[in-house]
């Protein structure tokens, strides 16, 4: 197992979290190094999205601590976490309908290497549509914009919640190309939640599998991808073709 050495960017220590009346995550501990890419896998409803939302401070944290970039962010407000360097692309994309593409990027911009121009360079399609409003975009364009909007916030850690869901294969290819370029050009750690398991394992070095709110497997993505039986058991994958 190849452990990428480097400073820790995100650390979870025995995190138990959920919503007002329910606990979803139990005693989750993990450590993501700077510039690492992690996949978070698991069946539906095991707490993958809750994990990302907990990192963002959008859930009720009952126990445990969260560290980010050397500091404790357990009790930090969401907007401060973002300012500290966590970017979040949610499943719903959540483009502002009454702002143009350009304005959607402008409201999220923080100083750093990722500028609007660079986001347009990454997704030329967005540059063509920069004057269109958020509600005039296709699903794929919205997803590109959601990723671009997270990038211009110049995060050190990017959380992606099912970025490929419901998109046409050609759009998925575009996004995969963009992520590959992103990994090459920038030192941004990534946590990817994705239902398309093989794709997720391909794009990441490390993986963890959640079941009923607990981590049941962790290791190198390549190992899990190779171990088909285990994979099928862990994430309920149909018999590998």
């Amino acid at each position: 197992m190849v452990e990428l050495l480097g400073a820790e960017i995100l650390g979870l220590d025995g995190v138990t979290a959920g919503y007002r009346d329910t606990v979803v995550l139990e005693q989750v501990s993990a450590s993501v190094g700077a510039n690492e890419a992690w996949a978070v896998l698991g069946r539906n409803g095991v707490g993958k999205t809750t994990l990302l939302m907990t990192i963002m401070g959008l859930t009720v944290l009952r126990e445990g601590r969260i560290r980010f970039d050397g500091g404790d962010i357990t009790n930090m407000d969401t907007h401060r976490r973002v300012q500290a360097g966590i970017g979040y692309v949610s499943q719903e994309r959540e483009i502002f309908p009454s702002l143009t593409v350009d304005e959607n990027l402008r409201v999220a911009t923080q100083p750093g290497e990722w500028t609007r121009e660079r986001a347009y360079d990454l997704f030329p399609r967005l540059a063509e549509r920069r004057r269109n409003y958020g509600n005039q975009l296709s699903g794929g364009e919205q997803q590109m914009l959601a990723v671009g909007r997270a990038l211009v916030g110049n995060p050190k850690l990017l959380l992606l919640d099912e970025p490929f869901e419901g998109l046409a294969p050609v759009i998925i290819d575009t996004l995969i190309g963009a992520f590959a370029r992103l990994r090459r050009e920038s030192a941004i750690a990534t946590v990817l939640v994705e239902q398309q398991v093989e794709l997720a394992l391909e794009l990441t070095q490390q993986a963890l599998v959640l079941d009923k709110g607990q981590i049941v497997w962790r290791g190198a993505s390549a190992d899990l991808a190779a171990d088909r039986d285990n994979l099928a058991m862990l994430v309920g994958l149909q018999e590998a073709r």
Partner: peptide, 24 residues
Amino acid sequence: SPFGLAVRGMRDNPVRMRMLGVNV
């Protein structure tokens, strides 16, 4: 102004605006 853009974004979706680092 950039402030005005943020305000319009907040009207659309305040939670998302917070997730972009804005103190709503």
